[in-house]
Design a protein around this nucleic acid. Structure first.
Length: 369
RNA sequence: GCUGGGGUGGUGGAGUGGUCAAACACACGAGUCUGUAAAACUCGCGGCGCAAGCCUACCCAGGUUCGAACCCUGGCCCCAGCA
């Protein structure tokens, strides 16, 4: 198990949660806001930034970090999730072939992403960790569909690593200077396939392995069996990464299984959808993340908060909780003022950063961002 | 006081003889959201019931009609214009 996550500004104690700054911004907040929440890093997305940004811009700025004025860590995602959310939607195979994925854009345009182009672009972003393009195993895939996505994921991982090493050699990025490279384990709910995928990826060799695909079962419960399988059949000294995971209690449980890196849209999207996370505790010190129901949701727009002069949470020290009342936030949401979204997002980011602080071994260095 | 328009659910506002427990919107309530097509979406919203369904409703009181929120008579109230 890794002791820390090395990035351009130093070392981060683990575990860490990175919110999704898909298009080089966490919606409604800026990089300084993110920093102020104690958030150590963000995840940016290859698919979106590939469409938004040209190479010239990245070259001029020397990477996405400088472009967005962010001093923390950065992981770049490969576009693998978009293979599912955009290319394979409605149960189709989309434009997925062994070569890569073709996305249909508006009009006649298409975007082709291959394992190689994804890595190339990610290297231009200059992240601290890059992710290989993977073929998302759709939920409820047939056995043969799942096998196909696993085979392709392994094939693509191999090609990604080759390209990655090529670029590292070209740029003189020796061991210790190059970013981490993460492979993604697919295979759906089939544990044998997950094991096969994990082992084959491990043979190729990566810095870390991700829990890919869709982690939620049909009954709405989190699929911890897959998490255990991935943890068990990957090298002990590597990172375990829960891609797009998850709810606070899911993060806690996965940390207990050895997972150390997480990213998810939940805290930021929930904030925009008026769902704030509140520790069920009277102070930050008293938070017990191993307790049942250690947090609850707060809905700021509700009528009962119209005249409520208390803070959103007693167990929080974010910009919102330190300075404003429930009534004021209620008002800001009612009049649809953008600041409501910003404050809510900042609050939920702080919730997750406190959560991760509580999950770190006592005595580990605070995140010095 | 005269003239004209109007009184429908928490609100605004459709409906103008049967298919109305009442469009649509807002408000309110309950949910969903997991490598961001998402400041989005779903559901409920007269009462009772798990439900099929039953009951009470369109200012008030009468009337016409097989049948009225819709037509007629009277009353009360509101709004606009003129005095």
């Amino acid at each position: 198990m890794k002791q820390y996550f090395k990035y351009q500004g130093g070392k981060l104690p683990l575990p860490v949660f990175f919110p999704d700054a898909t298009r080089a911004v966490v919606r409604t907040v800026d990089s300084q806001d993110i920093k102020a929440t104690g958030t150590p890093g963000v995840l940016v997305n290859t698919y979106h930034l590939y469409l938004d940004l040209g190479r010239k811009i990245l070259e001029r700025f020397g990477g996405i970090r400088e472009f967005m004025g962010w001093k923390g860590a950065v992981i770049s995602d490969s576009g693998g999730f978009q293979v599912m959310s955009l290319a394979k939607r409605a149960g189709k195979r989309g434009g997925v072939t062994d070569k890569g994925v073709k996305f249909k854009l508006s009009g006649k345009k298409t975007l082709e992403l291959t394992p190689e182009t994804s890595i190339e672009f990610q290297m231009a972003l200059k992240p601290d960790m890059a992710v290989v393009l993977d073929d998302f195993t759709l939920p409820n895939s047939t056995r043969s569909q799942a096998e196909e996505s696993v085979e392709r994921t392994i094939l693509w991982a191999e090609r990604s690593k080759k390209k990655f090493e090529e670029i590292c050699d070209q740029q003189g990025l020796t061991e210790g200077k190059r970013p981490y490279l993460l492979a993604v384990v697919q295979g759906g709910e089939n544990l044998k396939l997950r094991r096969l995928c994990a082992e084959r990826l491990a043979e190729i060799g990566f810095d870390g392995y991700g829990y890919g695909g869709w982690p939620i079962l049909d009954n709405g419960e989190f699929n911890y069996d897959v998490a255990r399988t991935i943890a068990r059949f990957t090298p002990k000294e590597s990172f375990l990464y829960g891609l797009g995971i998850g709810k606070p209690e899911e993060v806690v449980n996965l940390v207990d299984m050895g997972f150390q890196i997480f990213d998810c849209v939940l805290p930021t999207r929930d904030a925009r959808h008026k769902r704030l996370y509140v520790f069920d505790s009277a102070s930050i010190n008293q938070i017990d993340v191993r307790a049942d129901n250690f947090y609850e949701f707060f809905s700021p727009q509700k009528q009962i908060h119209y005249v409520d002069d208390s803070p959103i949470s007693l167990a929080c020290d974010c910009l919102l909780c330190k300075n404003y009342s429930r009534a004021y936030l209620n008002h800001l949401f009612r009049i649809e003022e953008l600041t409501a979204l910003r404050l809510a997002t900042i609050h939920n980011l702080r919730f997750y950063s406190i959560l991760m602080e509580k999950l770190r071994p006592t005595g580990s260095d605070p995140v010095g961002v």
